[in-house]
Design a protein around this nucleic acid. Sequence first.
DNA 1: ACAAAACCTGTCTAAATGGTCAAGATTTGA
DNA 2: TCAAATCTTGACCATTTAGACAGGTTTTGT
Lengths: 216, 216
Amino acid sequence: MSPKAVKKPRDKHFTTILLAAQEEFATHGLKGARMQAIADRADLPKANVHYYFKNKVSLYLAVLDNIIATWDDFLNDVNVDDDPAIALDTFIRAKVRLSFENPTASRLFANEILQGAPYLSNYISEVLRPRVINRTKVIEEWMNAGKMAATDPVLLIFMIWATTQHYADFQAQVLGIMGRKEYDDDLINQVSNFTSQTILRGCGLEPPNTNARGNQ
Amino acid sequence: MSPKAVKKPRDKHFTTILLAAQEEFATHGLKGARMQAIADRADLPKANVHYYFKNKVSLYLAVLDNIIATWDDFLNDVNVDDDPAIALDTFIRAKVRLSFENPTASRLFANEILQGAPYLSNYISEVLRPRVINRTKVIEEWMNAGKMAATDPVLLIFMIWATTQHYADFQAQVLGIMGRKEYDDDLINQVSNFTSQTILRGCGLEPPNTNARGNQ
DNA sequence: ACAAAACCTGTCTAAATGGTCAAGATTTGA
DNA sequence: TCAAATCTTGACCATTTAGACAGGTTTTGT
C-alpha cells in the first residue's frame, strides 16, 4: 500500500493529493468523488494526480491506509489496574476532541461503512474486532472486580464511538439545530463533559472531573 | 414536491421507483447514485424512471420528502406530566427498532448530512431546530420539577439520536465486530435495554423495565 | 366504441468523467 | 557539466452517464 510514498519522501505533492482526496472522498464517497475535483482541491492538473496514483480506487485505498495508520486507539494501553472512570473519561475526551478537530477522517470512514464497508470489511473483522474483544476483556475484569456496574462492554464501546463521532459526521445537523455557524472550544468542553458524565454514570461510575475544561 | 404523486395514486411504479432510489441514494449518495442503477433496482427501463421524475435531483428530493413525511417524532406528544423515565425509554426503544428495521432511511439521511446537508439545511433549521427546542423545554421542566438530574437537554437528544442511529448507519461495522451475519430480534432487545438503561441512569433516572424483551 | 390522456420504452445525444500519452521541464547524481 | 531519472502537464481518447424524444401501448372517461 501507499504506492510511491516509500520511494521518495521529497514529493510534497503526494501528501497534498492525499489530503485533497480525503476531503473529496469524505464528502462524496468513492463513486461520488471526482478526480477533477480532487485535482482542483490540490491545485494541480488532473494528469499529475494520475502520476502519483494509478487510478481512483488505488487513491481511495491510499487515503484509507493513511487514516488508519494515524489511528492508534486511545483505549489501547489500558489495563485492569487502571481506574475505569479515569480511563473511560480520558478515552471519551480524546474521541470528542478528535471529532471536533479532525472531522474529515471520521466522515470518510463513516461514508465507507455506510456503503457496507466494501474496502474495509477485512480491516474490521481482522483488526478492529480483535482489538474490541481485547478491550472488552479489560472492561469485564473491571466489572468482576466490582469497579463498575455490569453491562455489555461491546455495546458500551459502540455507544462511545457513536456519541463522539456524531459531532464529526453530523456536524451540519448539530450546527443547524444549535443555530451556530461553527464549532468552538466551549462546545468541545461542553460536549466532553456531558458525554463523559452521562456515559460514566450510566455505567455506575463517578465522573472524575465534573467541572469545565478537560484538556487531553 | 412529490411531482406526480398528487395526480394519480394508481401508479404503483411511482412507489417502486421511490423505494429503489432510496436504496441507491442511501448507499452511494446523490453524486454517487446512478439513474441506471435505480432503474435496475426497480426493474424498469431507465426511460420509465425519467417519465416519473424529471431528473436525478428531483428524484432525490422526492425521496427525502417521502422519508421526512414518514417521520413523526416519537418524542413529540410528550409533556411535563409524563414520567421522564417512561417517556425516554419508549422513545429510545422506538428509535432502536426503527434503526434495525428500516436502516435505509437512516442511511440516506446520514449521507445527506455527511455531505453538509446541501438539500436539508433548510429543513434542519426550520423544522428540526424548532422541534428540538420545543422538546428541550419539556425536558427542562422535568429537571426543574426534580424528576431528573440537570443536564444539557440538546446534547441528550443528540446522544439518543447518535446511539440509536448507529445501528442503522454503521451496520456493517457492528456486524463485523460482533462476528455476525445479520441482525436478529435478540440483538434489538439487547441494544434497546442497554441503551435505555445506560442513558437513563446517566440522567439520574431509574430505567422502567430492566428485564429482557421490550416490545413497543 | 373510440378518442384523449396517460403510460411505456428503444434509441439517440451531448456532456462528463476516468484515464492515457508524449513531449517538455526539473532535479539528481557522478 | 550533462545525462539519466523523475516530475509536470496539455491534449487527447474511450466509456459512462444523465437526459431527450418519438412512436408505440394501455387505460380512461364518455
